[in-house]
Amino acid sequence: MDAALWAFGRGTGVVSLVALTVTVLLGILTRSGRPLPGLPRFSITLVHRNVALVACAFVVLHVVLLFFDSFAQLTVLDFVVPFFGSFLPFWQGLGTVAVDLLIAIIVTALLRNRLGLRTFRVVHWLTYALWPIALAHAIGNGTDGTSVWFLWLAGLSTLAVLAAVAWRVSARFVEFRSVRTGQLS
């Protein structure tokens, strides 16, 4: 039973990370105002949103399954307060920080149309902190964190996100940027 929980805990962690990576990539893409071939803009937004919710579901599974696992020895406090774990407290603490950020980002995203644009946007920017913290947690804390296949996965994900961020800050990021003479304040 413990072995099964442990395996599920690891597996859901890896799936969460992949889903989070896809979410970040789609989030940056949708911000540019461009469609994908065969995927219109509103669909990108919807896929971004749904993959994010899938990532959340897997993060919840990941945390809950490991709570019942006897190796991990998690306490309720570890869900929200970082760096007090008994096993690898620093790397596990990063996971807790990532969960806290994720809660803030998801709640403000779900309430976006009530909170107004500014609050939503400021909190949503925390994603740029969430993603590397989650990745570091996976490498430092995960049983598979330093195995070759996972390092390949992590490396490719990092490259993809870095490329997207580089495109995000480049001059031609926004569609129509080249023909617009002024920018909104």
Binding site: V179, R180, T181, G182, Q183, L184, S185
Partner: peptide, 15 residues
């Protein structure tokens, strides 16, 4: 003198 708030004004008036 555009207040630079609305896209059609920001772009259309200089054009």
């Amino acid at each position: 003198q555009s207040a630079r708030q609305c896209g059609p004004c920001i772009n259309g008036l200089p054009a």
